[in-house]
């Protein structure tokens, strides 16, 4: 069973091809890193996968059920989420609690279990003490951390993360990767993460997918190499 299955995907912006012949899968318990030089349309690929953009050709199949047969829940952190609407009237706690809503709580009160998840998520990013602050008053790094906390509070089956560690110091990054690794190994979560930190993350990722430009192509085309070997030979 695949959580994400991309089959020969191509995507054009207007008439310009930006992604071509892309196929790969992300499975439960699998930590997949997606890399590529700047402008390699990594975010565009994620947005195609999530259904925010429609592929010009090919297919994306997202599982609708998780391994236990329940409705699959996705946790998405877009790029530069830290620049979110500064005037949005919400406390940190309100925002992170909203991460629990997709867990069947759109129309129900949050219960004890939800509150535990919220507290754990906020503590895991070191923002518990700041929970009553207005989100607009936080620094960029803090906003990034509460966005991560919100997704951890959701406790999704599939994480889709677009450069979530930009601007973090080395130690925070390591801790973040360890937390993700724990989630994939122990809790069987699928993870697809766009990242630039190739070297540090290799020891955590199960698979690397690299977007590369086709040689001699006049178009801005990218093809995809993937290697499923563990960490030693990343493309």
């Amino acid at each position: 069973m695949h959580y994400i299955e991309v089959d020969d995907l191509s995507f054009h912006f207007e008439d310009e091809p930006v992604l071509q012949n892309i196929s790969f899968t992300v499975d439960p318990s699998e930590f997949v890193m997606l890399t590529g030089e700047n402008g390699a349309a990594k975010s565009t690929l994620l947005r195609n996968i999530l259904g925010l953009l429609k592929p010009t050709k090919g297919n994306v199949h997202l599982a609708t059920r998780n391994e236990a047969g329940e409705k699959l829940i996705i946790g998405y952190i877009p790029q530069q989420v830290a620049s979110f609407n500064a005037g949005f009237p919400s406390t940190v706690l309100e925002l992170v609690r909203s991460g629990r809503y997709p867990r069947g709580k759109w129309f129900k009160r949050l219960d004890k279990e939800d509150e535990i998840h919220v507290e754990k998520a906020l503590k895991s990013v070191g923002m518990w003490e700041m929970r009553h602050k207005k989100i607009g008053e936080l620094s960029g790094g803090q906003k990034q951390r509460i966005s991560i906390a919100r997704v951890f509070a959701t406790d999704p089956d599939l994480f889709v993360l677009d450069e979530p560690t930009t601007g973090m110091d080395r130690q925070s990054r390591e801790e973040f990767y360890q937390l993700l690794k724990h989630n994939s190994e122990v809790h069987k979560k699928g993870i697809l993460m766009v990242t630039h930190d190739h070297d540090e993350i290799k020891k955590y990722a199960d698979k690397q997918i690299q977007l590369v430009r086709k040689e001699g192509s006049p178009w801005r085309c990218f093809s995809m190499d993937s290697c499923s070997e563990h960490s030693k030979h990343p493309c």
């Binding site: 947005r47 259904g51 925010l52 919400s90």
Partner: peptide, 13 residues
């Protein structure tokens, strides 16, 4: 609340 905060995140949820 979720829709207003971020439409794309709302869509993915």
């Amino acid at each position: 609340y979720v829709l207003t905060f971020d439409e794309e995140a709302a869509f993915t949820s």
